[in-house]
């Protein structure tokens, strides 16, 4: 279904109504939880984006408590070519509040799918994801996604994009603007408030996307290869800036990447996944001091050991051939 949704331009004649493949496409995209996975669970319920789970009891939790629990989540996709493709198999993972957790794995191992499940964009075939003990039933402003494709609104300026979230949250225009300007400055784009996304470089676009998500104060950042489309230099700078921002307010971050360096440099914890079916291979705690400075870290033998060890583990799994 994802493939079909993304496969634009191939056979879509511009005569929409006459083309059956388009019908219901927008609806599917509007569904907070796409009922597209084949399930043994029976009826998949579709819940409005404004679900009651946003209204959380204001309980003070201790810093090390779990914020996200992924409980034996499996995802099976029914595709036309391959019947019942197991994208995720029995994933269990607990993410602590304030932790920076990276998900690392080869292409197609289900990293994005796992992130979408936590985001509430996709509902798992079986198992459940919970946020602060409550089942995730749809997207909500407590979990803010940042996508590799930036996904900025092209018709809005930088300021308009960043203000979108606060305005949706009912913040008054003047106040939302002030907050947004401050955030734009924080991500280093002061002076670009009235630019349109098309006038920005890839790195700048991703800064805007980050600011747009931070603007509605999500408790968890869900980042899906946010720097994957950037050149090495821009990538490094954004990694540093992300770390600085994160070290300031210690939001929980779930960060998908397939770069070992990036994962080790940024994270408290690296979740290594393997492919077909997507499973968690190993969870590695990265015990490196913070605040982390890139130039210090690169010389640190502990950092080097983490990188080498993780790379070796991936090589081993590659050599082991196709897993069962």
């Amino acid at each position: 279904m994802k493939a079909r949704q993304n496969g634009r331009g191939s056979n879509d004649a511009p005569h929409g109504c006459a083309n059956d493949s388009l019908s219901g496409r927008l609806l599917a995209k509007l569904m907070p939880l796409n009922p597209r996975a084949s399930g043994t669970e029976g009826g998949m319920t579709v819940v409005s984006a404004r679900s009651s789970e946003w209204v959380r009891p204001v309980t003070q939790q201790d810093p090390a408590s779990a914020i996200i629990e992924i409980d034996r989540v499996s995802q099976v996709f029914q595709t036309s070519a391959r019947k019942d493709h197991v994208a995720l198999s029995d994933i269990s993972l607990t993410i602590e509040e304030g932790a920076f957790v990276s998900i690392l794995g080869p292409s197609g191992c289900g990293k994005s799918t796992l992130l979408y499940i936590v985001g509430g964009f996709v509902s798992p075939t079986s198992g459940a994801a919970r946020m602060k003990g409550q089942a995730i039933t749809g997207p909500g402003p407590d979990r803010g996604p940042v996508f590799q494709e930036f996904a900025l609104f092209p018709w809005k300026t930088v300021l308009g994009n960043v203000m979108y979230g606060p305005r949706q949250q009912g913040v008054r225009a003047a106040e939302a603007e002030a907050q947004s300007r401050a955030l734009i400055e924080m991500v280093g784009l002061k002076g670009y408030e009235n630019f349109y996304p098309k006038e920005l470089s890839g790195g700048m676009k991703q800064r805007v996307a980050l600011a747009r998500t931070l603007a509605y104060h999500p408790e968890v950042l869900l980042m899906d290869e946010p720097f994957g489309a950037l050149d090495a230099h821009t990538r490094t700078r954004l990694q540093n800036d992300l770390l600085n921002i994160w070290e300031r307010d210690r939001k929980t971050v779930l960060f998908v990447t397939h770069s070992v360096d990036e994962a080790v440099f940024l994270s408290d914890k690296v979740v290594m996944m393997s492919k077909s079916p997507g499973r968690i291979r190993q969870v590695i705690d990265i015990d490196l001091p913070r605040p982390r400075r890139r130039n210090e870290l690169l010389l640190d033998p502990r950092y080097q050991k983490y990188v080498v060890d993780i790379e070796r583990m991936f090589d081993e799994s590659d050599q082991a051939g196709a897993p069962a």
């Binding site: 511009p14 995209k29 409005s48 404004r50 985001g119 964009f121 494709e149 996904a151």
Partner: peptide, 21 residues
């Protein structure tokens, strides 16, 4: 046609920001 081919992630971004369908 235009409405049917809106990028999924634009919609997701708006949903996460708290917009209803």
């Amino acid at each position: 046609y235009g409405a049917s081919t809106v990028e999924q992630k634009l919609i997701w971004s708006a949903m996460a920001a708290g917009s209803s369908r």
